[in-house]
């Protein structure tokens, strides 16, 4: 759940770190965003699970070092910086802050701005 301290950002619990083995990828929803969690050794990276090239899922992409390759059209990105690594797109990954609290991977994908079309009338 979002932290109670406003300075704490919008960190949201996702999965247990223990469920994300080294080398593993896991896709979760944080608000409206589908987020891909990738663990490389002891580092956990989180970014929008939509390649900025054609908005296709990055899940399942081959990882070499800290570079992930989009399984659809081959765009490569450095998961540390988000920067593109080949000429397929000039756009960067949408990276999210990650932290581990009590063994849980928490992700800050920003505030959730969606209204609820079915819940604005107080039926």
């Amino acid at each position: 759940m979002p932290g109670s301290d406003p300075a704490d950002g919008d960190f949201v619990d996702t999965i247990a770190l223990a469920a994300l083995e080294a080398g593993a990828q896991h896709s979760v929803y944080v608000g409206m965003r589908r987020v891909l969690l990738c663990r490389v050794d002891t580092d956990v990276f989180a970014f929008r699970d939509a390649c900025p090239h054609a908005l296709q899922p990055l899940k399942g992409g081959a990882i070499t070092g800290t570079t992930i390759r989009c399984p659809k059209h081959g765009a490569c990105f450095d998961m540390k910086t988000g920067m593109p690594q080949n000429g397929i797109t000039k756009a960067s990954l949408e990276l999210y802050a990650v932290r581990i609290r009590d063994g849980i991977v928490q992700v800050d994908a920003g505030p959730d701005k969606r209204p609820n079309p079915y819940q604005q009338f107080g039926g």
Binding site: Y29, G31, M32, R114, P115, N116, P117, Y118, Q119
Partner: peptide, 13 residues
């Protein structure tokens, strides 16, 4: 459930 819940923020999935 997840897809429909995306249109209903705040609602548990």
């Amino acid at each position: 459930f997840q897809a429909f819940a995306l249109a209903m923020p705040g609602v548990p999935v």
